[in-house]
Design a binder for these strands. Structure first.
Lengths: 169, 169
DNA sequence: CGACACATGTAACACGTTACATGATTTG
DNA sequence: CAAATCATGTAACGTGTTACATGTGTCG
């Protein structure tokens, strides 16, 4: 999801101005994406340039943006698009471990160990977070991150096993 | 992980030229990151500009790049850096579902359903892939993607439950 | 010879990030 | 009044993507 997609989606709820969109963007994404307001304006400019959005200036200098028909259509396509068809997962943990194994197997064990420790601490943090807040978005984020972290921890274990097995031969 | 980090890491194995790095990059990352050769050269230029790499021209027009002391140091820092400290997870699936719930709860159910179907099919594909190849990198990638996909499927179920619960009240 | 892999690059564009500049309105 | 928040933007930079241009070597 790009800022572009996010803004398009938010405008589905009705006309908004830039500053408003910033807060709504962050709220909707459970605050995992802190957004510089400036980017909202440049992105809105591009959306307008591409005809997905129209701007109406209201008195007081406020500018109101709304979806055009094209914008609504683009949004529809985005809802239907499969997240899986997007560019392959450039995941930091995955790639770092893969490269470490390939480039410097001796060091790879250390990398894996240290990543696992850090990930485990993060996991604890997520679990703590789930118990403290009531916001739906934030709690779904926490749930997703917990599930991911658990999966990643298991994967790191598996990597280490494989490495040891390779080392033994 | 950026192309920059990847190239730095690959150069740890010894001096290389650009074209070589392209293939090694893709091999090391289990082919999840198809790389345009051009980018290798521009990235190497930047690394040289930043003093992390030196270029030596060999006869035949081939250019050999090697790590400098600074480069080695930067690489060391990268190995030690926690993947978790990197920018928060801009995950397509996670964000799309969150935004859908926030913006258009009625449609969110459809989005979730369709994402789940697609994800399940991908999962099947990954499982098939694991049984057919012997390459370590590729098989670790497959393993990671399977673990992730399973976690995500469970999360999608949980999202749907929550949505229905909200809808009921 | 022709196709393909090797090898090196440039140009244009999109996007995200940070920092900076400016002014109105609200609130302690 | 002073500070915070609301509101709109610009400039500069790093990075990733695509497309294009060029030339060498090899193999059928």
């Amino acid at each position: 999801m790009s800022v572009r997609d996010g803004l398009l989606a938010l405008l589905h709820r009705g006309p908004r101005h830039g500053y408003q969109l910033k807060s709504e963007f962050e709220a909707a994404t459970g605050k995992v994406w802190p957004l510089n307001v400036g980017q909202v304006y440049t992105t809105l400019d591009r959306l307008e340039r591409d005809g997905l959005v129209v701007m109406a200036e209201r008195d007081g200098g406020q500018k109101e943006f709304s979806l055009t028909a094209d914008g609504r259509e683009a949004l529809g396509r985005w809802w239907d698009a499969q997240a899986a068809d997007a560019p392959p997962p450039r995941d930091e943990l995955l790639l770092k471990v893969l490269v470490a194994i390939e480039v410097d197997p001796a060091r790879a064990v250390d990398v894996i160990t240290s990543q696992r420790t850090a990930l485990f601490e993060r996991l604890q943090g997520f679990r703590r977070a789930t118990r403290t807040n009531g916001d739906l978005a934030a709690s779904l984020v926490a749930e997703a991150l917990i599930a991911r972290a658990e999966a990643d921890l298991r994967w790191l274990d598996s990597c280490e096993d494989r490495l040891r097995a390779e080392g033994a031969t």
